[in-house]
């Protein structure tokens, strides 16, 4: 705990830093440069100061997109994490069926985002899609292109379908690492199923669950392709999340300045949340003495 930290090893990271500079740092610097200027194309720029930031901070459009994004991430985390744990708890621990379940669970993770979007876009169509057609025949009004509840439900169920496996697999890995002695001790104490979960399984899964929550949060916070393919951000702006709005602004309207200011604020929020998660995770690890 009180060991002196030798930071010299960081020099070994320099080659990676050079590579990352070209893929991330230099583009990010360019975005910062754009955010304080205005352009009409042709690489001619005019100084705009902090106007774009001020405009974005007052923009209802950005706050609405941020609100929708937070609600979306909140809902999918609230569904995927408990569901993932539930699935992991009920998966076979060893033998043929354990391997079978693992392969089955990883299938959705292998499908590219735009293909998932297309699958659900067709699946939900009232004329040819199995889901849309069935719901329609059951007399349930369902049309994700016109009804915002249907659009949200489709996007959320799609994300749950695509990513719950990730949480389940991580939670499963956490469960597998618990030695049998813990369960035997619980049995001797006649602990209830709930106590076993609460005092043995959950604490042992805490580390991997933090990673799962961090990954799912980041991914859902940056989601673009799936809702773009299914709803295109509609109906109206109902499923226009931050990335979709950003692309509309930067490429659709060619408002590079405001879009750059928007990106920087988006980046700062992600950086803050990632830092909080990272700090909590490393502190958890230290407390457990890993």
């Amino acid at each position: 705990m009180n060991k002196t930290v030798n930071q010299k090893a960081w020099f070994l990271v320099l080659p990676v830093l050079v590579l990352v500079a070209f893929s991330a740092v230099i583009p990010l610097m360019t975005v910062v440069n754009y955010s304080v200027q205005d352009t009409f194309g042709n690489n001619v720029f005019f100084w705009a100061g902090l106007d774009w930031f001020e405009q974005m901070l007052e923009s209802e459009r950005m706050w609405n997109a941020l609100g929708r994004q937070l609600i979306f991430s909140g809902i999918i985390l609230a569904i995927e994490v408990p569901l993932g744990i539930f699935v992991a708890l009920n998966m076979p621990k060893k033998g043929f069926w354990a391997s079978f379940c693992l392969v089955l669970m990883s299938l959705p993770l292998l499908i590219p985002w735009n293909v998932v979007g297309t699958i659900w876009q067709i699946f939900g169509r009232v004329d040819i899609g199995l889901l849309g057609y069935t719901l329609d025949k059951l007399g349930i009004s369902y049309n994700y292109t016109q009804d915002f509840v249907a659009a949200w439900a489709t996007v959320i169920v799609m994300d749950v379908w695509h990513w719950t496996s990730l949480v389940a697999l991580l939670a499963y890995a956490g469960l597998q690492s618990i030695p049998d002695a813990y369960y035997q001790a619980a049995k001797i104490d006649q602990a209830s199923r709930w106590s076993v979960f609460r005092y043995i399984e959950l604490p042992k899964m805490a580390g991997v669950l933090m990673i799962a929550i961090l990954l799912r949060f980041m991914d859902s916070f940056m989601i673009y392709t799936e809702p773009f393919v299914v709803t295109g951000g509609g109906p109206g702006n109902a499923t226009t999340f931050l990335s979709i709005d950003l692309v509309k602004m930067a490429l659709g309207q060619f408002d590079l300045g405001p879009a750059a200011a928007f990106s920087i604020m988006y980046f700062l929020v992600i950086l803050l949340i990632s830092w909080v998660f990272y700090t909590v995770m490393t502190n958890l690890d230290k407390r457990e003495g890993r």
Partner: peptide, 15 residues
């Protein structure tokens, strides 16, 4: 570097 659209204030910021 022209494509990066540098300005003096942002250069000072990153510097």
């Amino acid at each position: 570097m022209a494509w990066m659209a540098w300005t003096v204030p942002t250069a000072i910021f990153f510097g």
